[in-house]
Simulated assay, not measured.
Amino acid sequence: MEFIVPPRGTFTTDLAAFSCGVKPATIRDWVRRGLLTRCGGTPRRPLYRAEDVEAARYAAKPSRPGQRAA
C-alpha cells in the first residue's frame, strides 16, 4: 500500500531520510542496527514514528574499524 500522505506523526522511508538529510539506505541500516523501529505499514512500505526518527538521527552511532570519518 503506497501512501500519498502517511498518517500524521509518521514517516515513510523516503520522508524519514529526507528529514534527516540521509539516503533511504541509511534509514534501512538504522533499522537493521536496532537504532530505529517500524511502527506499521507493510514489509515493503514501512512507517516510522517521527519521534523515533529524530532520536535515531541524533543517537550515537557505533563505529567500526576502518570506517570512514564523517
Rank of each mutant, 00 (worst) to 15 (best):
M1Q: 12
E2Y: 10
I4P: 00
P6C: 15
P7L: 14
R8W: 08
R8P: 10
G9Y: 12
T10F: 09
T10N: 05
F11K: 02
T12W: 03
T13G: 01
L15Q: 15
L15P: 00
L15F: 01
F18Y: 05
F18P: 01
S19V: 12
S19E: 12
C20I: 03
G21S: 13
V22S: 00
K23F: 02
K23R: 06
P24A: 07
A25T: 04
T26I: 05
D29W: 03
R32G: 01
R33K: 11
R33S: 07
G34E: 09
G34K: 10
L36F: 03
L36Y: 02
R38L: 07
G41C: 05
T42I: 10
P43L: 09
R45D: 03
P46V: 05
L47K: 05
Y48L: 04
A50S: 11
E51P: 03
E51M: 06
V53S: 03
V53N: 02
E54S: 10
E54T: 02
R57L: 05
Y58K: 07
Y58M: 07
A59K: 14
A59D: 06
A60G: 11
S63T: 12
R64V: 08
R64P: 00
R64W: 09
P65W: 06
Q67K: 11
R68W: 01
R68G: 03
